[in-house]
Amino acid sequence: MCVAPVLAGCEGALSSLDPAGPAAQSIAGVWWVMMAGSLVILALMMGLILFPFWKRHQPREVPETLWLWGGGLGFPLVVLAALLAWGLPSGQSMLAGRETPVYTVEAEAYQWGWNFRYPGEDGVTPEVLHIPAGEPVDVAITSLDVIHAFWVPRLAGKVDAIPGTTNTLRILAPEPGIYEGMCAEFCGLEHATMRFRVVAHASDEYESALDAALAGQEQP
Rank of each mutant, 00 (worst) to 15 (best):
V3C: 13
A4F: 13
V6I: 15
A8S: 15
A8I: 15
C10P: 09
A13I: 14
S16W: 12
L17P: 00
P22T: 14
Q25I: 06
A28V: 08
W32C: 01
W32Q: 12
M34A: 13
S38N: 12
A43V: 09
M46A: 13
L48S: 06
I49D: 07
I49T: 09
F51S: 10
P52V: 11
F53H: 07
W54F: 14
K55Y: 10
H57Y: 07
E61D: 07
P63A: 12
T65N: 01
L66N: 04
W67L: 13
G72H: 10
G74N: 05
V78P: 02
L80G: 00
A82T: 08
A82K: 04
L83A: 15
G87V: 03
P89D: 12
G91V: 03
M94W: 01
T100Y: 03
P101R: 08
V105T: 09
V105P: 03
E106G: 11
E108G: 01
Q111F: 02
Q111H: 07
W112D: 15
N115A: 14
F116L: 05
R117G: 09
Y118S: 09
P119K: 06
E121L: 01
D122V: 08
G123F: 09
V124A: 15
L129S: 07
P132T: 11
G134K: 08
D138A: 12
A140R: 10
A140E: 06
I141Y: 05
T142C: 04
S143K: 04
L144K: 13
L144A: 05
V146L: 03
V146K: 08
F150D: 04
W151Q: 04
P153S: 05
K158H: 11
G164Y: 06
T165H: 14
T165C: 01
T166C: 06
T168P: 08
L169D: 03
L169R: 10
L172S: 10
L172F: 02
A173C: 04
A173K: 04
P174D: 05
E175C: 02
P176K: 07
Y179A: 05
Y179G: 00
A184V: 09
F186Y: 13
L189D: 08
T193E: 13
M194S: 02
R195V: 04
A202W: 00
D204V: 02
E205P: 00
Y206H: 09
L214I: 01
A215K: 10
Q217P: 00
E218W: 05
Q219N: 11
